[in-house]
């Protein structure tokens, strides 16, 4: 059984004359334990696919299936225990007036956990922060540390599928390496499935097994990373992207 199946997904914004079709007929599936990449330039609809899966883009049609269960427009509580998302900008995705403890504690409480205290400690250790960061506020953390907190928050409900929206594009290369290593470790430890959006082909090449290339809202090609490495992409746009990133 696949972890995620997306079939003929359309996402649009606005209506009538102002309607923009952000994603058109997107179809792909991600196996259990796989790491799948979505690449393309800005405006190609890659982030919109993730937002449609989590329910942040309200207007969509087609079929989204997570662990064999079809997802409706209203999502059940259990859905958020299975699927979590990490956002691009750790400077914007954390509440500036909530301490790390509050961020994680509130998430755990919402998901109905009882042993919040021990779980917060465990989460912080999992993402390599340790307890001394527990009562800090976001402005007291560096970009990399903030992204670790955002990852801890996503891990709190013990999800199976993690959606990563450009998790390192706001970070320095040296910090990017730390976060990418952390994400690889967490995937093996927690047996996670990743769907990762990035405009950086080498990051996707490092992290993913398969990837989809998007252009103007459409998936133009789905290929294995090995094919990418050998520069054997078939679609001219994928080749163009490859050449530009070398």
């Amino acid at each position: 059984m696949n972890m995620l199946d997306v079939n003929d997904l359309n996402v649009w914004f606005g209506s009538g004359r102002d309607r923009v079709d952000a994603v058109k007929h997107a179809t792909f599936s991600v196996a259990q334990g796989e790491s799948f990449g979505l690449v393309g330039e800005s405006g190609s609809g890659k982030s919109t696919i993730l937002r449609a899966i989590t329910g942040l883009a309200p207007d969509w049609s087609g079929a989204i299936t997570v662990e064999g269960k079809a997802i409706g427009h209203k999502r059940a509580k259990a859905f958020f225990k299975t699927v979590q998302m990490v956002f691009q900008d750790p400077y914007a995705s954390l509440h500036p007036r909530h301490s790390v403890d509050q961020v994680l504690g509130e998430t755990l409480q919402l998901h109905g956990f009882k042993d919040i205290d021990t779980r917060v400690v465990k989460l912080l250790e999992d993402v390599g922060l340790g307890t001394k960061f527990r009562f800090r506020y976001p402005h007291q953390l560096s970009g990399g540390q903030r992204q670790r907190v955002a990852i801890a928050r996503a891990l709190a409900p013990e999800p199976d599928l993690l959606l990563l929206d450009e998790p390192t594009s706001a970070l320095d290369v040296s910090v990017q390496a730390e976060i990418l290593n952390l994400l690889s470790d967490l995937r093996t430890e927690h047996n996670l499935t990743y769907v990762m959006v990035s405009h950086d082909l080498s990051v996707v090449g490092h992290m993913c097994d398969r990837l989809a290339v998007m252009k103007d809202g459409e998936i133009v090609e789905v290929l294995d990373v090995d094919v990418l490495r050998h520069m054997n992409a078939e679609h001219p746009y994928s080749r163009h992207l490859l050449e530009a990133s070398l």
């Binding site: 040296s174 990017q176 390496a177 290593n181 690889s184 080498s202 990051v203 490092h206 490495r229 490859l242």
Partner: peptide, 20 residues
């Protein structure tokens, strides 16, 4: 050197990236 090594590379895949 640390900065250069911490970059993922398409042509030279590695399991783990080097951390500075």
């Amino acid at each position: 050197q640390g900065l250069l090594n911490s970059l993922p590379r398409l042509d030279a895949p590695r399991d783990r990236l080097e951390v500075l």
